[in-house]
Design a protein around this nucleic acid. Structure first.
Lengths: 213, 213
DNA sequence: GTTTGCATGTAAACCGTTACATGATTGG
DNA sequence: CCAATCATGTAACGGTTTACATGCAAAC
């Protein structure tokens, strides 16, 4: 059995429809309530961005193919004074597809991390440059933590429509926050060690990144 | 001013060569010593796989374009009793390009995590399924930690050629290990909480995922 | 004798990013 | 008046994955 998963329009019978994480995430969002492409983009930016994101272009095209595949259907909502909205909702097939995805184990994939990739090779440059990367990285981590806490407040302030749905969303944030805190701790230790070494080596003329008054 | 960074062969003067993380990682590996595509694949699997990876197909094609762009050069090494090797090494331009990449700040990108994406939506399925995902995830994390420690031993057993290069590689492992440990802790807490809830609800008939012999 | 290790690749499909394109309304 | 918010998309390119393709030598 080939089970080829092509998404062409030439085959004639029951070709298995495409399955990708982005598609599943969108189905998951629509599982909670009907949404437009714009709403979905906002959901990404507000809640999902730290472990997945997609541009408008990808969202709108994916919605179109989901509709073509019969997993969602759309309804045009006419509005005065602002652009009309194309509201998407799950079809029964879409719900089945979502349930299937939720049941399946997540395939263990590696995670790309450009910062670690660069750090790995920093033995081939100067300690000063490596230190700069670490300091910038720490700042990025702090910003991420801050953003997450801000989002968390917005979520917990108003009572949720369906508190059960919220539960796992909060778990994911807790998870992410712990990861970030651990990363911050390691980064800070590394910064401290490096600073010590650099200062021990050049006690008179300090590197820029090394001063703090 | 277009500054388009196309890599076509139609333009006539000093088009800037492509820059991508994979290309840079390969340059970084070749910065330590000459290697073949096969060696590079091994380096990925042994040392880099937890935050970046690439298949053979990508590696061999990338090496070819790097050579075409003048960043690396190759030499065919004839062998008896096994396939010949095509040894790649950096050219001076390749070294310059690598140094440039090491100097630049890593762009802050989000990290895709399919597990968290799925967990986020688990309010739409049963707690039993969510528990199964968490248990599987814990297992995956443990395997990753174990693999990393195994790699670490291989690295620290025999003395390194250039200990300075090794330093940052060890830092990256330390970093990854801390992240994994934090993730494990959060995962375990979540498992415990869920188990409690499930048992409180159905104390007699246990779910499959709840037993372990 | 079958699997593992060594060693190199091509082709097609798929996923994701960047740039481009448009246009009304509301708030500062 | 300028920026942000609301709202929907297309086109082109670049990066990644999956499937396919080959073949000898050593170890079990």
């Amino acid at each position: 059995m080939p089970a080829h998963r092509l998404n062409g329009k030439n085959a004639q019978e029951e070709l298995p429809i495409a399955r990708s994480t982005l598609r599943s995430i969108i189905l998951g969002l629509l599982g909670a309530r009907p949404m437009t492409g714009y709403d979905i983009k906002q959901a990404f930016d507000r809640a999902i961005a730290s472990y997945w994101n997609a541009g408008n272009s990808q969202i709108y095209t994916t919605l179109k193919t989901l509709e073509h595949d019969g997993l969602v259907e759309s309804e045009l909502v006419i509005q005065q004074h602002r652009p009309n909205r194309k509201l998407y909702r799950l079809t029964p097939q879409g719900q089945a597809e979502l349930a299937e995805w939720l049941k399946e184990s997540a395939p263990a994939r590696f995670t790309k991390d450009e910062f670690l990739a660069k750090l790995f090779f920093c033995g081939q440059t100067t300690d000063e440059i490596a230190l700069r990367h670490l300091v910038e990285h720490r700042q990025a981590l702090e910003a991420q933590l801050a953003h997450m806490e801000w989002v968390l407040q917005r979520y917990t302030q108003r009572p949720a429509r369906r508190p059960h749905l919220l539960e796992y969303q909060l778990l994911v944030r807790e998870y992410k926050a712990e990861t970030l805190r651990a990363d911050l701790a390691v980064t800070e230790r590394a910064i401290a060690r490096l600073r010590e070494r650099i200062e021990g080596r050049a006690p008179v003329e300090l590197a820029e990144s090394d001063r703090k008054e």
